[in-house]
């Protein structure tokens, strides 16, 4: 009843929506690793005689104003979108996780200093912070990703800290101390494993959020310039052709489905249901 065992990966009763979500992620991963397997069109060079065609059997997602196949652009843009989101999560998870861990475990003045640091990160709105960083360091997708990661440090730090405080005060942690465990043993073998579940769920959730934020920043033009095929950039250039709505809504649909899948998996990790 009170068990908080990690989700059993071998569990036969995986909910259907979770299986579907994993399938979606598998497709996205395959697109980013082997884009050539999914489309024979060139994402950068189009056939101008075929421009702005609606979706058809030949062009599943239609074509853009230069006659490039939109599906090819989406597939080839996956790598940039996925890796930048992963980079953002890595930055947030490592920096935030470390800050939260130290603050929660050491307490005292370390906790106070870290708390103010986190307050500062929270006080500057995420999107503004990202714009600020990108303006200062240059308009590049990598910088967008780092900026997005930095703006999520506060959330990771908060969750990590509260998890460490929660498990740190658990009875089994005190018990381990009584049984001869050193502070480091307690931290590494008891506190971290028990805190990892919520932090993992948060990291997965932030992978989705980062895709959205990065797409938003790319949409505003802070990422790599065209002809890059970032998902956000695709939507941004598509919106200049309101009579060809597929240029906006099909790449957007890919973003939405991916993020939905990621969020569902995060929820599953958190609740195991």
């Amino acid at each position: 009843m009170a068990g908080i065992a990690l989700p059993r990966l071998s569990a036969p009763s995986l909910p259907g929506s979770v299986v579907l979500s994993f399938l979606v992620l598998a497709v996205v991963l395959a697109w980013s690793l082997f884009p050539g397997l999914f489309t024979q069109f060139d994402p950068y060079v189009g056939d101008t005689s075929q421009k702005l065609l609606p979706p058809s059997l030949r062009y599943w997602f239609g074509t853009d104003h230069l006659g490039r196949d939109l599906l090819a652009r989406v597939v080839h843009g996956t790598w940039a979108s996925v890796t930048s989101a992963a980079l953002a999560v890595a930055v947030g998870l490592l920096a935030g996780g470390l800050i939260g861990l130290l603050a929660g475990f050491l307490g005292g003045w370390v906790d106070t200093v870290m708390a103010r640091l986190v307050d500062v990160l929270l006080a500057i709105p995420n999107f503004l912070l990202a714009v600020l960083i990108v303006s200062a360091f240059g308009f590049e997708t990598t910088n967008i990703a780092i900026a997005t990661g930095v703006s999520s440090v506060a959330v990771f730090a908060r969750v990590m800290r509260s998890e460490v405080l929660k498990t740190g005060s658990a009875v089994f942690v005190e018990a381990s101390g009584l049984l001869g465990g050193s502070r480091w043993h307690v931290l590494l073998r008891h506190v971290l494993p028990n805190s990892s579940r919520s932090v993992l769920a948060l990291a997965v959730l932030h992978f989705g959020t980062s895709i959205l934020t990065i797409a938003g920043l790319a949409f505003l033009g802070y990422g790599d310039p065209p002809p890059a095929a970032d998902w956000g950039l695709l939507v941004a250039s598509g919106k200049d052709y309101p009579s060809s709505p597929w240029l906006v809504f099909l790449p957007a649909g890919v973003i939405v489905v991916t993020v939905l899948a990621v969020n569902r998996i995060s929820r599953w990790i958190r609740h195991d249901d």
Partner: peptide, 22 residues
Amino acid sequence: PAVSLAVPTFIIGIFLIQLFAF
């Protein structure tokens, strides 16, 4: 809520313009 949290802000805006303005 879960679904709309997966939709980028700019898509909602573009969609509203497409539908209600155009």
